[in-house]
Amino acid sequence: MFIAATLAIFVAMILAIIRGIVGPTLYDRILAVNMFGTKTVLLISLLGFVMGRPEFLDIAIVYALINFISVIGVLRYSDTNKLKHTPSNEKPLDKEY
């Protein structure tokens, strides 16, 4: 049962990776990486139960916090340092960032 759930999480992670590679804008990529991170937390806790070592949950807690900090950090950077290339009063629809 644990192995089936682990495989399902793997499938979801692969879908997120595909969106991260394809994803037209910067924000799609960040979204995909964020989802990849939350799925990693679930994967670590599931793997702990598969291997019969629930101590893995500590690592899962730490990973959740690191994932949160990294996403917030990237977004602060993009908010203040202007990763965008378009001037602000142009219409930037569907433009690659």
Binding site: N34, T38, L75, K84
Partner: peptide, 18 residues
């Protein structure tokens, strides 16, 4: 963490005119 991240992401995207 989930709603905080999605709110910050949406706000940053909106401020950069997406």
């Amino acid at each position: 963490i989930g709603p905080t991240t999605s709110h910050v992401l949406a706000k940053a995207a909106m401020h950069n005119n997406l």
